[in-house]
Amino acid sequence: MSATVQRFLDPAVLGAISGLDLVAKTVVDGFVAGLHRSADFGFSQDFAEYRAYAPGDDLRHVDWNVFARTERAYLKRYRGETNSLLTVLLDASNSMSYASHAVKKIDYARYIAASLLYLAIRKQRDAAGLVVFDDEVRSFVRPSTRHGQLQRLLAALELAEPRARTRFEAPLEHLRGFLRRRGIIVILSDLYEPPDSVIRAIEPLRYRGNEVVLFHLLDPGELKPQIGASAVLVDLESATRFPVTAEYAAGRYRERISRHIESLRVAARGAGLAYQLLVTDQPLDAALREYLTVRQGRD
């Protein structure tokens, strides 16, 4: 991927762009341009094959030119034309408002969500929906391919400001009642809960044939906290505060959060979930690449 394209995936650069639609278009166009028509991934407008018509097939996909020459009905199929369904679950709890640099975790999550939704609707012709949650479902946009769906989704993203705490059980329980069709579920969260609890809440989504992608968003300041000699840390969700030492932050804390990440990774794979750690000072292409990989596996 060229440096110019990479530049459009930099979250710091995206932070200067107003409007999630423009952010999404910038990210996806830049990402697609960098792929150079890779054979790994197919988009809906790329021709794939002809298939013999079978009763029940949509007549709109019959290639009538071929039928005129051969008097046989063939369906024209395109790559990626699987009519997949993408549902993005965005964690909008207070912990997502943390930032040790220019881009908050919630902003980074919105960039990814917008990019994925743009990619699904505009490039894949997939139905896409959005669930914004914290300790409950705050907003829900049903997956659809209707005209104006992308604008509705981006508007919901714009309104997703962090508040409250994270709880996976209640919102996912609520979500299971709405998800009738199989599809891809992308979860964007910092996952500040015990790994067992997270996997236990998410795993049921997999039972219905959904592909679940777990994007674990962390700020670089959460991986390597820079704390002075004397500091009192305040929990953004619980408002709990207590003094910490720099020695602990540089030692014991790093061990514990590394162990937490590794536990999540192992538990997710054990449950058949795709897991990807995203650090908010890194480009967005890792998320897009992970999504396309998962979608490719569904074809």
């Binding site: 910092d190 906290p225 840390l233 305040v234 953004l236 505060r241 207590f242 003094p243 804390y253």
Partner: peptide
């Protein structure tokens, strides 16, 4: 008046460092 730093979660910190 120790410096108060907002942090996403104190899940991995230990208050016994007081």
């Amino acid at each position: 008046r120790s410096e108060a730093l907002p942090f996403s979660s104190l899940m991995f910190f230990e208050p016994r460092e007081e």
